[in-house]
């Protein structure tokens, strides 16, 4: 495995937790993001993710470097899966270790926020009656017709 990677196979989160664990780390936060079946009353059958792989891996690496700068003493690993994912499967894993828990929690949340904001990964929702590429879930462009109230979170 690489510390920052886009993968096509199912994610095994423990591998990323093990990767960041060190003798000086007293805390590891392990976030896994899963495919949700129900979003605001609409049922998702499955998701299809795609990525601009080389750029996405570079940006994940930069996020990790930024975390180590903002929270010294942390170590991070991030993976995002692409392709077709079924309900409940893991789309993203973020593992952060630090000497104390506070930094590990904060850095982990920072990582998922940055991923959702700018890493070139896209998901397509597949429903019983149609499909749609989902746009930015944090800042909604006025002109885009991509969201239509179907954003997650």
């Amino acid at each position: 495995m690489k510390a920052y990677e886009i993968v096509t196979e199912p994610i095994e989160p423990q591998r990323y937790a093990d990767y960041v664990l060190r003798p000086e780390a007293g805390a590891v936060t392990l976030f896994t993001g899963h495919v949700r079946e129900w979003t605001r009353g609409i049922r998702t059958l499955y998701l299809a993710y795609e990525a601009y792989i080389p750029m996405a891996e570079k940006m994940l690496t930069k996020i990790g470097a930024k975390i180590e700068e903002k929270w010294p003493g942390t170590k991070t690993a991030i993976a995002h899966r692409i392709g077709e994912l079924q309900i409940g499967e893991i789309a993203v894993v973020i593992a952060v270790s630090s000497p104390h828990r506070r930094d590990a929690y904060e850095a982990n949340e920072y990582a998922i926020e940055r991923i959702k904001e700018s890493v070139p990964i896209w998901k397509k929702e597949i429903w019983e009656d149609g499909t749609e590429w989902i746009g930015d879930q944090r800042k909604k462009p006025d002109v885009s017709n991509e969201n239509k109230g179907l954003d997650s979170e």
Partner: peptide, 25 residues
Amino acid sequence: EEYALSEDVLQDGDTAALIPPVSGG
């Protein structure tokens, strides 16, 4: 593979990726 500004100039051999709003995570 780096976000660019609207005034940045393309060089021969460059790749330019159009990145719609992202939705990873």
